[in-house]
Amino acid sequence: EDYYQILGVPRNASQKEIKKAYYQLAKKYHPDTNKDDPKAKEKFSQLAEAYEVLSDEVKRKQYDA
């Protein structure tokens, strides 16, 4: 799945936009606030993985290549 789609940001998003999108979605899908939703944990880990790659310039360049 596309990391940009997961975070809901365009491919040319700035680091600030990526961070903002991640924090909004992380708050929304955090397992502690969605105890009754088994998919929230999965969504949250996808968000974390996408953010880890896109927030790191080197990893992001490799991902975009």
Rank of each mutant, 00 (worst) to 15 (best):
P10C: 14
L54I: 04
A40W: 10
K39C: 10
Y4N: 00
K28Y: 08
A21I: 04
R11C: 09
I18V: 05
K61G: 08
Y4A: 01
K41H: 14
H30R: 06
E57F: 06
P10M: 07
K41T: 09
N34H: 13
D2F: 05
V9K: 01
D32A: 10
N34L: 11
Q24E: 15
K28I: 13
Q5L: 11
K16S: 15
V58A: 15
K27N: 13
E42D: 10
Y4F: 02
Y3R: 02
L7E: 00
S45H: 12
A21M: 08
D64R: 01
F44Y: 15
S14T: 15
L7T: 01
H30E: 10
F44G: 05
K61L: 05
A48D: 06
Q62H: 11
S55N: 07
A40I: 13
Q15E: 08
D64P: 03
V53I: 12
Y29Q: 05
Q46W: 09
N12W: 08
Y29E: 04
L54Q: 00
E49I: 13
K19A: 15
K39N: 14
Q46F: 09
Y23W: 12
A40M: 10
P10N: 11
K19H: 15
K20P: 01
Y29R: 05
T33D: 08
K35H: 15
Q46S: 10
L25M: 10
A40Q: 08
E57T: 09
Y63E: 03
D64A: 02
F44R: 08
Q62F: 07
A65R: 07
A26K: 12
V58C: 10
K43Y: 11
V58T: 11
I6K: 05
Q24M: 15
D36T: 13
Q62I: 13
H30M: 08
L54P: 00
L7M: 08
D2I: 03
E57W: 13
Y22I: 02
V58S: 10
E17P: 01
A40K: 06
L7N: 00
K28Q: 14
D56G: 02
K16N: 15
A26Q: 10
K16V: 14
K43S: 06
K28N: 09
Y51A: 03
K20N: 15
K27Y: 08
Y3W: 06
P31H: 08
A48W: 13
A48V: 14
A40E: 04
Y4Q: 00
R60Y: 01
Y51H: 04
Q62W: 12
L7Q: 00
K59I: 03
A65S: 11
D64E: 04
S14R: 06
S14G: 06
K61I: 05
L7K: 00
F44V: 05
Y63Q: 02
V53H: 04
L47P: 00
D2L: 04
D32Q: 10
K43L: 10
P31D: 09
V53Q: 03
S14M: 05
I6Q: 05
V9S: 02
Q24G: 08
D32Y: 02
A48T: 14
A26G: 05
L25K: 07
P38R: 07
A65M: 12
A40V: 09
K35L: 12
P38N: 09
Y23R: 13
N34P: 06
N34W: 12
I6P: 00
T33V: 14
K16T: 15
A40D: 05
G8E: 07
Y22F: 14
L7I: 05
S14N: 09
S14H: 07
Q15P: 13
E17G: 04
L54F: 01
K61Q: 11
Y51G: 02
Y4R: 01
Y4C: 01
N34Y: 03
Y4V: 00
N34C: 09
A13C: 07
S45A: 14
K27H: 11
N34E: 08
P38A: 12
V58Y: 11
D2P: 03
K39I: 14
K59P: 01
P31R: 06
Q46G: 05
K39A: 14
Q15A: 13
S14W: 03
